[in-house]
Amino acid sequence: MRDLDETDLEILELLAADARRPYKEIAEHVGLTPPAVSDRISRLEEQEIIQGFTIDIDRGKLRGDVPVLVELEPTPDAVADVYAAAGELEGVEHVFEGMDGRVIVHATIPNADARSWLEREVDLGTVTGYDVTLCNRSDRVTDLAATGFALECVVCGKEVTNDGVTATVNGEIKTFCCPSCEDRYVSRYESHRDALE
């Protein structure tokens, strides 16, 4: 798997802000051609960094449903079953399993009767308790700053800044904080390669 470079991070940031952004617009922003952007996005999908393009639907506005957070406390032997059943409930947007075995569900339900909604899929006999929180508002934060993905120099481990350099070594792109680290890496690689031949 190839390491991400600054261009990959810029592409991810642009797509996180608007996944429908045309490749031509991305290409103009990052200084590539649209086919090169397409190739990079395909590679990011193959590496499972991008796991899909989706839309964010406000079901409350769509059908007038009530947004809720439900915290279920399954018995220890029922965590997997409760997690799976919760994912089958109508209107579920997210299901989480905490390290302590609690199952947390974010959903929109047709009315405020959470118990009857839960009973459609979840065996409440396997749950020691549950809490329902009606949501007043929520925001989906999709902003992705490239600073959260700072590259590190493969030689010294320092963060690569705008002064950094990249080099292709044996078909792989490597990132360095400065030309001297690049020279050290390439020299070591060549000496190892020569020793093997």
Rank of each mutant, 00 (worst) to 15 (best):
R43K: 12
L44P: 04
E45A: 14
E45L: 15
E48M: 10
I49K: 04
I50M: 03
Q51L: 13
T54R: 11
I55N: 09
D58E: 14
D58I: 15
G60A: 05
K61D: 02
K61P: 01
L62H: 13
G64N: 04
G64E: 01
G64A: 04
D65P: 07
D65I: 09
D65N: 14
D65H: 12
V66S: 05
V66T: 13
V66L: 07
L69K: 12
V70L: 05
L72G: 03
E73M: 13
E73Q: 10
P74R: 06
P74V: 07
P76Y: 02
D77L: 11
D77K: 08
A78H: 03
A78Q: 01
V79E: 00
V79L: 00
A80S: 11
A80P: 05
A80N: 10
D81V: 10
V82H: 02
V82P: 01
V82Q: 04
Y83N: 10
Y83G: 11
Y83V: 15
A84S: 09
A86S: 10
A86I: 02
G87S: 02
G87W: 01
G87P: 02
E88R: 11
L89F: 00
G91Q: 04
E93S: 08
E97Q: 14
E97Y: 05
M99E: 12
M99Y: 12
G101W: 09
G101V: 14
I104T: 10
A107T: 02
I109T: 01
P110R: 06
N111G: 06
D113W: 00
R115T: 07
R115A: 06
S116N: 07
L118I: 03
L118M: 04
E119Y: 09
R120F: 05
E121W: 04
V122M: 04
G125R: 08
G125Q: 06
G125Y: 04
T126K: 13
T126C: 11
T126Y: 11
V127D: 01
V127M: 08
T128K: 09
G129Q: 09
Y130G: 01
Y130S: 04
D131I: 08
T133E: 11
L134Y: 08
N136R: 15
S138V: 12
S138M: 10
S138Y: 09
D139L: 13
D139F: 12
R140Y: 12
R140C: 15
T142S: 10
